[in-house]
Design a binder for these strands. Structure first.
Lengths: 339, 339
DNA sequence: ATTAATAAAATTAACGTTTCATTTAGTGAG
DNA sequence: CTCACTAAATGAAACGTTAATTTTATTAAT
């Protein structure tokens, strides 16, 4: 095997110059004669030199890597967001390391420590479920930007989020305008701020309007189709079932629709269903899913930009907070209240 | 800012020992007295020591990072595969760096070089569109495992693929058994072996059976919904349109179904549609999509295992080739031939 | 008790870079 | 043709580790 590694030293030898000069060429320093510069470049090409970023990072204590830590890569919401992060990061000269936590807090911590260990320049945590003190601790070792953070997080850390509260609020109001009074809600795992905010939006809307507030109209879900199916079944088989069900994300809503179908209920004639996120699938399922649109890609872009700006600007120490807007996308899964 | 970095040296000082001893503790060497070991461990905890993997990798010329380079993270097929890779890699002590090429060959090359630069131990290339000589070149610097490689690739490189040929063959045969004779096919970009194999499966099946072979029943797509929509429209508006359309992936098939709907054609009564990959969405769209199932997760797992085994076993130099089976999942989008 | 043997700890030289302090070469003015 | 000065190139130290070598401490055998 013995993959022989070409170093700056080999390049220097072939070019007939010192290592310092080669390094200067690589880093674009002005102080190297164009003749020598060319010789070095030629030597690099000839030897197929590839710089060793680990050595470089060790020496300079800088790197062009940023981590993106997210809950569930298989929920299409996250790839869309990840793409926004990746595109922006690439544009700004950074590479992302994508880490999938499976909503497992331990795994999330391990990933962040791995990123610190590998001296990544920063990390974007999406819907982090790390305890606040861990985030605080890690933030001393690596620049952090949060997307949809923990509830009540106060640290000096940038935050990008969407108007989750308003999103849910508007959805419930819209259902009210269709005549619904019995509107249920299925939450996520309530471990992220965004999820709590969505619940709050629901609660506020229900209390504001002419809705029936019942505790058993609120179910704790887990952001999955299966979860939605199970809880949707429960809700729809209550003695006084809701006529509309809002969900903390689209997968849950899809599960609810399946549950309705299994119970021979028509959507939206018998029951209305709304999701959150507006993933691409919404337009493809039957009936097409009414959903609260989040600017996934923009969110990713924004977070990447904010993080990298922080990385580049050594003295910027104020925490910034960006809120992007949601928008209700009305499709076929919601309709006027039956009866 | 000044994030102060705790090194092995600081730990040694606090523990009242030499760096060598600390290093031995970290690497679990047996030759350190349990009393000292404890002191070191305590010091590490107290200082919140996090090892510098760049330094370690520089010194040992090893790392626990592997790259996963794939075409389109937003196609749900890839996250499912990625999860298989990630789970297996984690289980074997490795971390993955996920890279998304957008089917851009330049970007793919940049990513591979980045991985080499960062001294990743290996890389899994999914449906690589790199020229063969590039792969050959890179394989001298980093261990490579291919998933669904370039056509005709012959290098000494492990390969994991699925029975693409048989998959398409069986699908066309099945359509034949439903009475279809005019079966069209929409390819992908034909830049990966898997895609070419699928086309070959189609061609062979058509030539074998009592099908009508027409060149204009074969369209070159691009693996996207939009592509499927456009080409599906074209096919369905031909003077003698096909009665069934097979697609190189599910997204394309979904596009075709949308095109059919837009033309007021019913699926499957007027036209049958089949996809490839069997992504989760297949069960959710209406009508549910008949598709050729690939063991995405298993494929990822297998590739990760093969790669890491190769990394760990320095002398293993024979290339291995694994073929996983496809399976036709019959759902609602295919039916008996009209008329 | 002395020596030989082994166990444990300490020391030091790398790994491939960058960077800073030097040295050498190059230029124009007097 | 020097001198002073600038430009360019060189050399060596350092980054945080590991691993090989050397030193010191401990144990066993005579």
């Amino acid at each position: 095997m013995s993959k022989k590694i070409v170093t700056i030293k080999d390049v220097a030898r072939l070019a007939g110059t010192s290592l310092g000069t080669v390094s200067n060429v690589i880093n674009g320093s002005k102080t190297v004669k164009s003749e020598n510069r060319e010789r070095v470049i030629k030597a690099m090409e000839e030897l197929e030199y590839i710089p060793n970023l680990t050595a470089q990072s060790l020496k300079t204590n800088k790197s062009k890597l940023i981590g993106l830590v997210l809950p569930t890569i298989t929920n299409p919401f996250y790839p869309a967001l990840a793409k926004g992060v990746e595109d922006m990061a690439n544009r700004m000269g950074y590479t992302i390391i994508l880490c999938n936590t499976d909503l497992d807090c331990e795994k999330e911590a391990r990933y962040v420590e791995m990123l610190i260990s590998n001296r990544a320049a920063g990390v974007i945590l999406v819907k982090s479920s790390l305890p606040e003190e861990s985030i605080e601790k890690y933030s001393k070792k690596i620049k952090i930007t949060l997307i949809d953070s923990k509830p009540n997080f106060q640290g000096n850390i940038d935050l990008v989020e969407t108007s989750n509260y308003e999103g849910l609020f508007k959805a419930v109001e819209y259902l009210g305008s269709l005549g619904h009074t019995r509107v249920a809600y299925i939450t996520g795992n309530l471990r992220s701020k965004s999820d709590v905010e969505r619940l709050n939006g629901y609660l506020q809307a229900v209390k504001n309007g002419k809705f029936l507030y019942r505790e058993d109209y609120i179910k704790n879900g887990n952001f999955t189709i299966d979860g939605g199916y199970k809880l949707g079944s429960e809700l729809l088989q209550m003695p006084e079932p809701p006529t509309a069900i809002c969900c903390s994300n689209d997968l849950t809503a899809i599960g609810v629709i399946q549950a309705a179908k299994a119970l021979n209920l028509r959507v939206p004639q018998d029951v209305s269903v709304a999701g959150f996120d507006d993933i691409d699938i919404c337009k493809l399922v039957m009936p097409a899913l009414t959903s609260i649109h989040q600017p996934k890609y923009d969110q990713g872009e924004k977070a990447a930009r904010v993080l990298i700006e922080k990385i580049n600007d050594e003295n910027a120490s104020i925490a910034r907070n960006y809120i992007l807007n949601t928008e209700l996308k009305i499709r076929e899964s919601t309709g006027i209240c039956p009866k």
